[in-house]
Simulated assay, not measured.
Amino acid sequence: MPTFILLTHERELTRESNSGRIAKTRLGQHCQQVVWQRKAPDPALLALIAQQQVGLLFPAENSTALPVVDLAELNLSGELGDVSNGTLQQENFTQHLTQHLAKPLPKYFILLDATWQEAGKMYRQSPYLQSLPSYRFTGDYVSGFTRRRNQQSEGLCTLESIAVLCALSGDVTMAGQLLVDLQYHNQKAFDC
């Protein structure tokens, strides 16, 4: 599984709707948080980027398309459910994905942990992000994230994006656990 770096807009630190903090808690050492600063990029992040093992999940103009993992197919136990002609077990799922990935996933993934508007601003104002190989999800999918309004169609929240990347890297169980966490997170909005 890649290590995820949440490049977090400072406003996200106080938003109860932020899903990135759930991923950070669930994934432990596999998820780091760096607060984005336009004028003072994090030196450790820049050093990691210099090693050329980092990809950016952002739908930039020349981004590499990643195959669709239908989030609805990941059931609550973290197993992959019925896919086309039968149940696909985790080993078969991993083999299936390997055949459809043009190249191996990067060792580190940066995700812009912000609203879509803020993420666009972060990308435009950070040349070091624009220089990274970028990746995007393709296909028809609907976000299960219900805690924010005015979301982009076919845009996933941070937690869903990490779940998809976990599944693409072969960890379907973790992907399922993250989606269960998202369901609980969504429920909080209605428990108040």
Rank of each mutant, 00 (worst) to 15 (best):
L71M: 14
E10F: 15
L74Q: 00
G55E: 02
K103H: 14
Q117A: 12
S153Y: 13
L57T: 01
T94S: 10
G86H: 11
L7T: 08
F109N: 05
Q52A: 13
Y123D: 07
E16C: 06
L45G: 01
G170Q: 14
R21V: 03
L74Y: 02
S134R: 05
E73S: 12
V172E: 04
I49K: 04
Y184G: 11
Q187Y: 13
E16H: 14
A50S: 06
T98M: 11
G55Q: 02
A119W: 00
R124P: 07
T3C: 15
F58C: 06
E79A: 12
L129E: 06
D70C: 15
Q32P: 02
Q183A: 13
L7H: 02
D113R: 00
A189K: 15
Y141G: 14
N75C: 11
K188M: 13
G78H: 02
Q187A: 12
Q177T: 13
Q183C: 09
L111A: 02
Q151M: 09
L74G: 02
T138P: 08
P43T: 05
I49Y: 00
E10V: 15
R38P: 00
N18Y: 01
V180Y: 05
A44Y: 07
C166V: 13
T98L: 13
R148M: 12
E154F: 11
S169N: 10
E61T: 14
R147C: 09
E12Q: 05
F190D: 15
F190L: 13
F137S: 00
T158N: 09
W36S: 04
T94W: 08
I110C: 03
T87K: 05
L45N: 03
L46Q: 04
N85L: 14
Y128H: 11
L165R: 06
R11S: 11
Y108Q: 05
S63T: 10
A167H: 03
S63H: 07
T87N: 13
R148G: 08
Y184M: 14
Q51T: 15
F190A: 12
K188S: 09
L27K: 04
L7C: 08
Y108P: 00
M1A: 14
Q152K: 13
P127Y: 11
L132V: 12
C166M: 08
Q51L: 04
L179Y: 03
